[in-house]
């Protein structure tokens, strides 16, 4: 019995068993967590899969309504098909230096002062609006998106890569004020 243990075979067996047990444990935790996360966020995931606006605000009516982030590829598709109005949240000076071709200028500061009166005259609230600013470190587009949603725009997206990502991708840009 003693030699049997000293040979190390059962010890290796136990190590293998422990390793297998730990791996099973890890797999189980990951599967349970993934299932819970997917079930909890099923509406958001369905919306993201279809490229639709999130229904999160309806699921949590007391929470703040947030615009949905959108990626470069989707922005390009909507830009080319003219299915969305692209709005630049940066200052008028930054807009004049360079902006996404066809975008409208709507500086966040200006919107805070005057409200979206000017935009509403040009763009109906039923339109899909994409807000952008100076990339991932810039939060103005998200703030602008929130204000637009509060103003009645139902389909608002935020392009977080913003002008730098668009320009670096070699997509059409323009300079000068509108």
């Amino acid at each position: 019995m003693v030699r049997f243990w000293r040979d190390g075979y059962p010890r290796q067996l136990m190590l293998k068993k422990n390793l297998l047990g730990t791996l099973t444990e890890i797999c189980l935790i990951v599967v349970v967590s993934a299932a819970a996360g997917i079930a909890w966020n099923r509406t958001l995931l369905t919306g993201a899969w279809r490229g639709e606006l999130t229904q999160q605000a309806q699921a949590a009516p007391q929470g703040e309504e947030l615009p949905m982030p959108i990626g470069l590829v989707q922005v390009k598709e909507l830009h080319d098909s003219k299915q969305a109005v692209i709005v630049d949240a940066r200052s008028a000076a930054s807009f004049a230096q360079g902006h996404i071709a066809g975008a409208l200028t709507l500086p966040l500061e200006e919107l805070r002062k005057t409200g979206p009166v000017g935009l509403k005259a040009k763009v109906p609230t039923s339109a899909t609006v994409i807000a952008y600013c100076n990339g991932f470190s810039c939060h103005d587009s998200m703030d602008l998106g929130k204000l637009l949603m509060q103003a009645g725009y139902a389909s608002v997206y935020v392009f977080e890569g913003g002008y730098p990502e668009w320009r670096d991708a070699g997509y059409p840009t323009a300079t000068g004020a509108l």
């Binding site: 996360g37 997917i38 909890w40 966020n41 958001l44 995931l45 899969w49 990626g71």
Partner: peptide, 14 residues
């Protein structure tokens, strides 16, 4: 794009 949402859905629960 979609993987960002999937990660955002699953990672917090993990």
């Amino acid at each position: 794009y979609f993987a960002s949402y999937l990660t955002a859905a699953v990672l917090p629960f993990l």
